[in-house]
Amino acid sequence: MLTFDEIKEVIRMVEQSSIQHFELEQENSKIVISKAGIHKVQTGSHEGLEVPKAVWAAGESEQRLAKEIPDVQAEPLHTIVSPTVGTFYMASEPGADPFVKAGEEVESNAIVCVLEAMKLFNEVVAGVKGTIVERLVNDGDFIEYGQPLFLVKPKL
């Protein structure tokens, strides 16, 4: 059975997704999360946080499909923000080399970290080609939706 915190997490995940209606039935309980209605009323505030998700197509590893995150403030540094809530991991498994290090050059489709939310791992991509300047969070940190993860100096 889900704990109260886990239910909150599920609600947030639905909030951030394209899902309008989600029903979850377990043996003796049912959770219904519906965004109908809210969608029309709120037009502004959440849109700004729209973070693109990537999809990997095989054979295109060099040109994986990832939309660039719009750099709102037009600063020279690009911020990689979290597309979801979850626990931040710099490597694919404990003890393995981190996906990226400060000073490392990355392609826009490079995986920079994974975020674990309720046993599911989400890969986060750089979104821009450039050099990793700084990691803003620590391994094992719990990350909020939209939280800055890395600073990248874009390469033009």
Binding site: K53, A54, V55, W56, A57, A58, G59, E60, L65, E93, E116, K119, L120, F121, N122, E123, V124, V125
Partner: peptide, 22 residues
């Protein structure tokens, strides 16, 4: 269906999430 769009000309496609291999 959204994966179909992402697949393009390649023979398979998958999302950026997975079940941990722990």
């Amino acid at each position: 269906e959204s994966l179909v769009r992402a697949m393009g000309s390649s023979s398979f496609a998958f999302p950026p999430w997975y079940v941990g291999r722990s």
